[in-house]
Design a protein around this nucleic acid. Structure first.
Length: 267
DNA sequence: GCCCTTGTTACGCC
DNA sequence: AGGCGTAACAAGGG
């Protein structure tokens, strides 16, 4: 599923289109702002691609006055099955829990660029239609970015939280970009029980948690995303030996989500 | 054809 | 006021 790592991979894949001018736009009519998006983007030039947590933000500038662009921004959230396809090349070949097919009828957003500016396209293909497109996203998640967490920052944000550490880490206003798989992965790496109240974590716990983020996230990013962890989908499905300690993995529901964890080393 | 899956939001409660 | 838990949501796949 698209978590912050997938969004970062998508962001990087879209950079090739910076400088191109929008020729035409198709938007799923079910999107709340479908008409505004389709009407406002043609003629705009893609000026940059940013990421905010799990969102990819396409930043446009008016072609008629590049120095005073109108700052049009389109925030894209990929739901649980959305994929970004740039120039007909999918950056992530296999999304867990998502079909591997790319049925054109599942295209929810298609941006075609003018031939004169380089041609090509950016598409969002999403079988389950949970992607969301927002023009000028005012208030995207305000949590610290998953690739930018420090022990001091995380400690401050966990203080006084009585909810489970898993629930708090999934909160995009605490850490932006962590999803179900990544949270299970880092709690496994740090040896922390997912159900522990967040405020009960001591300094050593938080240090281990951040050290795990620092070590695992870049590795998983390079390996293709949130499915590329040690606690990978095969382990999640089979509940075999814990990849960390060899103990027996268990599955339960924490914070309303399917949670895989190891009772032997996560305490 | 029921039930599982994800992230976010809308609620009700405390 | 705001943290917290939970249900609901779409739709494909098993």
């Amino acid at each position: 599923m698209p978590e912050g790592l997938e969004a970062e991979i998508y962001r990087r894949s879209a950079l090739v289109a910076v400088g191109r001018q929008v020729e035409s736009v198709l938007v799923d009519p079910a999107q709340p702002q479908a008409e505004e998006i389709a009407a406002s983007l043609p003629g705009e030039v893609l000026g940059g691609v940013e990421r905010v947590g799990k969102h990819v933000v396409l930043e446009f500038e008016s072609s008629s006055d590049p120095d005073h662009g109108d700052g049009l921004r389109l925030g894209v959230h990929f739901g649980m099955s959305g994929r970004l396809i740039v120039d007909d090349r999918a950056a992530i070949g296999e999304l867990v829990y998502a079909s591997n097919r790319l049925d054109p009828s599942w295209d929810r957003l298609v941006i075609e660029f003018t031939a004169a500016s380089g041609g090509g396209s950016i598409r969002v293909n999403d079988p389950r239609r949970w992607s969301k497109f927002v023009l000028d996203p005012g208030q995207l998640p305000v949590g610290v970015d998953l690739l930018d967490v420090t022990p001091a920052e995380l400690g401050r944000r966990l203080a006084d939280r009585t909810a489970s550490i898993k629930s708090v880490l999934l909160n995009q206003d605490v850490v932006a970009g962590l999803g179900n798989m990544l949270v299970d992965e880092v709690l496994s790496g740090a040896g922390i029980h997912p159900g522990r109240p967040a405020r009960d974590l001591d300094e050593a716990d938080i240090e281990r948690l951040v050290a795990t983020l620092d070590e695992r996230l870049p590795t998983m990013l390079a390996a293709g995303g949130s499915h590329a962890g040690l606690l990978d989908p095969a382990h999640r499905a089979s509940l075999g030996a814990c990849p960390r300690c060899g103990g027996g993995l268990e599955r339960s529901t924490v914070a309303g989500r399917t949670t895989v964890w190891c009772p032997d080393h996560q305490t």
